[in-house]
Nucleic acid binder design. Structure first.
Length: 460
DNA sequence: ATACATACC
DNA sequence: TACTGGTATGTAT
């Protein structure tokens, strides 16, 4: 069932372009056939060329790492080993198995909501998004290799009958608010990660019902049409997240709160399944022969010598099945940004006017939360998909359109001057402001629109 | 602090 | 024809 990612061997195509079948609903697909279509649609494009460049950079990074590895002595390794063992011992000693953390994930959320509103879609391959980009796909579509973060025009080649529905964020927000009310019944301090995902700590909830059969929201929420909720239940957030993905497309999975069960669960878990390990880290670890979490534990001394402290500590936690045991809503936000993609833009007036518009949009967003920021970052992406960021930090925090534009236009001007007399051939501009100062969290107030009923069932 | 990369949804 | 947008954080300088 596991592929451990997309780079099973040295095929002649880019691992970063190939189908990412890491997510559920993509098992047993004809990956070769799908990848051929993806490659055919992409090859030669500017996007593809840029991806190729990025992949070369990753390869170089791996080469540097392997060179570094070749210089490691037995002595260094055994010293690191001692350090790792001590740390492992300490971590294990304070392991907290007392909490019951739930990761909730609404399966193919946007697609499910759209299907509720248009039941005809139920039996058709469909995706939400546009010809440029898809955000979700239903299970029929996944069978063709169609998935989130894939451009619609490629998805159409994989599945000519694919129905693409435009996104309706307001609608998803409404449904999300409904679901969140239920989450709050189980944990008033639940942590929303996005419209369709959240972490809950149900330890208290269970404690209050001691002696009762253990109950949790089951996987089926009836809302005009079925909305499937996936639950992962485990002693910490990292494991809960992995668990919620375990029984897709319909189910819940509970990992018991004992060390033995956790360690068995971790053994064969591909590193890519862990949140925070993406395709680059997967590839780097793969170069060291590490594909599953056991390997991670076995090679920890080596990892301690090759990676930064934060990285290998993270790896160590993963290899021991450790994760955060108390969920906390994020404090104040750390940044706010806005960016836009468009057809090639080379005219100066247009570029400056867009820059001003972005500053205005950002100023508006900042105002909504009564925030100001000190660092203004200009982000540019040219028609070859190359990204540049240029930042300037001010002595005082700013928030208005004019204040932002005063900085952003200089940053933009500098970049234009740098390439002149050639024009900047842009496809994206963005404007990022890193706030400090005043933070006010908005209060959610949503009307109840749907009736939600849900099953109660035992989780054992 | 700045630039760029990675990751998540 | 067509490959997102918002936020956080890691890596490197």
């Amino acid at each position: 069932m596991e592929t451990g990612g997309t780079s099973s061997s040295g095929e002649g195509f880019l691992s970063r372009m190939a189908l990412n079948d890491n997510k559920a609903g993509m098992e047993g697909l004809d990956r070769d056939k799908i990848n051929k279509i993806i490659m055919k649609s992409s090859k030669g494009s500017r996007f593809y060329e840029n991806e190729m460049k990025k992949e070369q950079q990753v390869n170089q990074r791996i080469e540097r790492m392997m060179l570094q590895k070749s210089h490691i002595t037995e002595q260094q390794l055994s010293k690191a080993q001692t350090q790792v063992e001590k740390m492992t011992f300490d971590l294990d000693r304070v392991r907290d198995l007392s909490r019951v953390i739930v990761h909730v994930d609404m399966d193919a959320f946007y697609a499910a909501v759209e299907t509720r509103d248009c039941p005809d879609l139920k039996d058709k391959p469909m995706a939400v998004g546009s010809m440029s980009m898809l955000t979700t796909s239903n299970y029929h579509a996944r069978k063709f290799g169609v998935r989130a973060a894939m451009p619609g025009f490629i998805a159409k080649k994989l599945c000519p009958n694919l129905v693409i529905v435009p996104t309706n964020f307001d609608k998803y927000r409404e449904v999300s608010a409904e679901i969140r009310e239920i989450f709050a019944d189980y944990d008033p301090h639940f942590l929303p990660m996005s419209l369709d995902e959240a972490y809950l700590d149900i330890s208290e909830h269970l404690e209050q019902r001691r002696g009762w059969p253990e109950v949790l929201p089951c996987n089926t929420f009836a809302m005009g049409l079925l909305l499937v909720i996936l639950l992962g239940i485990a002693p910490n957030m990292m494991l809960a997240k992995v668990c919620s993905d375990k029984n897709k497309p319909n189910g819940q999975y509970r990992l018991p709160s004992n060390r033995q069960a956790v360690m068995v669960f971790i053994q064969d878990l591909p590193v890519r399944k862990v949140s925070g390990i993406g395709k680059v880290t997967e590839k780097m670890l793969g170069a060291l022969g590490i594909t599953s979490c056991v390997h991670l534990g076995q090679e920890m001394a080596l990892l301690a010598l090759l990676f930064s402290e934060t990285s290998w500590h993270h790896f160590l936690d993963i290899s021991l099945g450790l994760g955060s045991t108390h969920i906390e809503r994020d404090g104040e936000r750390k940044s706010m940004s806005t960016e836009r993609t468009f057809g090639e833009m080379s005219a100066l007036e247009e570029q400056f006017s867009l820059c001003r518009q972005l500053c205005q949009d950002l100023a508006q967003d900042l105002q909504k939360e009564a925030l100001k920021g000190k660092t203004v970052t200009l982000k540019l992406k040219n028609v070859n998909f190359e990204v540049k960021t240029r930042a300037w930090t001010l002595p005082c925090a700013v928030a208005t359109t004019d204040e932002l534009f005063a900085v952003a236009k200089d940053l933009l001007k500098t970049e234009i001057d740098n390439v002149s007399p050639q024009p900047l051939r842009l496809r994206l501009m963005g404007n990022l402001n890193l706030p400090s100062l005043t933070g006010l969290n908005g209060v959610y107030r949503w009307k109840k629109i749907l009736t939600i009923t849900f099953h109660i069932c035992c989780i054992y």
